[in-house]
């Protein structure tokens, strides 16, 4: 994590018609890190990724890759590779040909292409699938082939454009783990685009949160989660109770709000009346009307509460955070 900067983005701008998709972005990506670009759709994260890849040209600003300005270079002259949202495997080629493609294009000897592709195939645990066509693979398998096709080229940076979006929940969670493990193993810089905050939090070394073409905050998942610098970040990354307490506007995450039957124990506490309880599996989200007039949510492991029960909600002061309006 203390490596050198591999990608350096300065004042990057790109508009589509009247829409300023990317509105002045500065970003340094460190060699070997797993950086996630997180944001709602239309926030500019994918456009930034596509500009790093070279599929879009910036209106202004520069992108430097390993010390070289690549802003105006075509994709095929950039040492980056992309895993596409819907994989973009070549349907007329089998798995092996797909994986070999980049190597063959670069003019490696047939034998070397073959052995490197087979190694990659082993790495993604798809030995024996080399002669299948993409259409004969499951979504997860295609995903892994797309990954192998990019990684086999050993790019300086691997760009991943919402690669897990099309998978079902279980597979997605499994792939998150695999992807992270793979990244550690190969040591290549990953730039990962997603709109799923959980995914971002669980996989990334750092997260850049995008909104309206700008980066709202950049930091480690913990920093982002526990200390969001803006209302947008706090809202987008996890849920937040936004209340006024002791005349101060404060924010507190629902999981830090504890519920007790006992009356006020001092410290930070309010009285709450349970309005609704939403069961979400491992935990339950309790929605309270409070004595200070703001509704509050507490996420806890399952509790024997009934609607209308009056309880005390409390939290530790250091878990509060302030945000810019």
């Amino acid at each position: 994590m203390s490596g050198s900067t591999i990608v350096s983005i300065r004042s990057l701008k790109r508009s589509f018609g009247d829409v300023r998709a990317v509105d002045g972005i500065d970003l340094d990506i460190t060699e070997g890190e797993f950086l996630t670009l997180l944001g709602p759709s239309g926030s500019g994260k994918t456009t930034v990724l596509r500009m790093i890849a070279g599929f879009e040209k910036p209106d202004s600003g520069t992108i430097t890759l390993a010390g070289k300005d690549v802003s105006q270079l075509p994709p095929y002259e950039r040492d980056v590779n992309t895993v596409f949202q819907d994989y973009a495997l070549f349907p007329h080629m089998d798995v092996l040909a797909n994986i070999e493609y980049g190597l063959r294009v670069k003019g490696f000897a047939k034998q070397e292409c073959r052995s490197r592709a087979l190694t990659a195939l082993k790495q993604i645990r798809l030995e024996g699938y080399e002669n299948r066509k993409p259409a004969q693979l499951s979504g997860g398998q295609r995903q892994r082939v797309a990954l192998a096709r990019a990684l086999v080229n050993q790019p300086a940076v691997l760009l991943l454009d919402e690669p897990l979006g099309a998978l079902d929940l279980k597979l997605r969670e499994q792939m998150q783990i695999e992807l992270k493990a793979l990244q550690r193993e190969v040591g290549i810089t990953f730039v990962f685009v997603t709109h799923d905050q959980e995914e971002a939090l669980s996989m990334s070394d750092r997260i850049a949160v995008f909104n309206h073409g700008k980066i709202e905050q950049i930091g480690t998942p913990r920093e982002i989660y526990e200390n969001p610098k803006s209302e947008f970040v706090s809202e987008f990354v996890g849920q937040t109770n936004r209340i006024e307490y002791d005349g101060k506007k404060i924010n507190i995450r629902p999981e830090f709000v504890t519920i007790s039957r006992a009356s006020s124990t001092g410290g930070r506490s309010v009285q709450g009346t349970l309005r609704d309880a939403i069961f979400v599996g491992a935990s339950t989200r309790y929605l309270f009307d409070t004595s200070i007039g703001f509704p509050m949510i507490s996420t806890q492991s399952n509790n024997q509460l009934k609607v209308g029960d009056v309880v005390t909600l409390s939290w530790q002061e250091e878990k509060e955070f302030l945000v810019q309006q």
């Binding site: 890849a53 599929f55 095929y76 992309t82 949202q85 070549f90 493609y101 980049g102 294009v105 080229n153």
Partner: peptide, 18 residues
């Protein structure tokens, strides 16, 4: 023909003619 196949090919280092 999906556009991203063209992107993917370029991304993997292929010139337009290729």
């Amino acid at each position: 023909l999906p556009n991203n196949l063209l992107d993917a090919s370029g991304d993997l280092g292929a010139h337009n003619w290729h």
